[in-house]
């Protein structure tokens, strides 16, 4: 049974979400979101994995292309996923800085009402 990679992926997603729910600090929630997103990387790469296959790169020095490679489609999706995760993290951290400036706290529970 080799379902551990899938289970690890879902564990990361659920654990990251639990961290967001229980968070007392906005920076901590942003890191938890990154953990949850790491689960999606593991899931995508696990779906594309093939035992004893080589990576889907045949260049430099050129090797003979074969079909016995890991799935490049999910790897390309993982790349997209990583880029989006990094940019979203930057944006959320900037928002956390603004919230700290305006409200003087980064505890989500203390942010009661919307203020201008």
């Amino acid at each position: 049974m080799n379902i551990y990679a899938y289970l690890v992926a879902f564990w990361l997603i659920v654990a990251g979400s639990a961290g967001i729910v229980r968070s007392r600090n906005l920076i901590h929630s942003v890191v938890c979101l990154s953990v949850a997103q790491a689960g999606t990387y593991v899931l995508l790469l696990a779906v594309g994995f093939q035992s004893k296959a080589s990576p889907p790169v045949f260049g430099s020095p050129p090797s003979k292309p074969s079909l016995s490679v890991t799935d490049p489609v999910v790897q390309a999706m993982t790349l997209t996923d990583v880029v989006v995760s990094a940019t979203v993290t930057a944006l959320l951290l900037a928002i956390a800085i603004q919230i700290h400036k305006r409200h003087g706290t980064v505890d989500p529970d203390e942010l009661r009402a919307l203020r201008g």
């Binding site: 080799n2 990679a5 899938y6 889907p56 490679v69 890991t70």
Partner: peptide, 16 residues
Amino acid sequence: MPAFGGSHHPYRDHAV
């Protein structure tokens, strides 16, 4: 799900 590490990857075949 299809078994982990299996050789059935239709998208891979087309993409390669």
